[in-house]
């Protein structure tokens, strides 16, 4: 079980949330080249390290937020950031 710190609901079981994926800034759809857009869609950093990722609090507050998790130890660092401003592939 992974307890995910929702900024609104506090720690919740990961099963209550939906994992959206790595948070990357979305290129402007009006000016992005095909290559930029597809890189944004498909290419992943996938580190075995700290990762900035987007979660959706599906069974709680139904809000998006961004947090930093270590993908090998599953620790969290820094407070979660409410909202989906940074990007994410919702």
């Amino acid at each position: 079980m992974l307890l995910v710190p929702c900024p609104h609901c506090g720690p919740r079981n990961a099963a209550d949330l939906r994992y959206v994926g790595e948070s990357h800034a979305r290129p402007d759809p009006n000016s992005a080249t095909k290559e930029q857009w597809r890189t944004y869609l498909y290419i992943e950093d996938n580190p075995s390290d700290w990762l900035r990722e987007t979660w959706y609090c599906r069974s709680g507050c139904r809000q998006y937020f961004v947090l930093e998790r270590h993908t090998a130890s599953n620790e969290f660092r820094n407070p979660p950031i409410p909202g989906n401003k940074i990007g994410g592939r919702a």
């Binding site: 079980m1 992974l2 079981n13 990961a14 099963a15 939906r18 994992y19 994926g21 790595e22 996938n46 075995s48 990762l51 990722e53 993908t71 090998a72 130890s73 599953n74």
Partner: peptide, 13 residues
């Protein structure tokens, strides 16, 4: 599993 991980621990879920 529902989120990215390099950890192969099993889960009760």
């Amino acid at each position: 599993d529902p989120f990215n991980n390099y950890n192969v621990r099993g889960s009760l879920e």
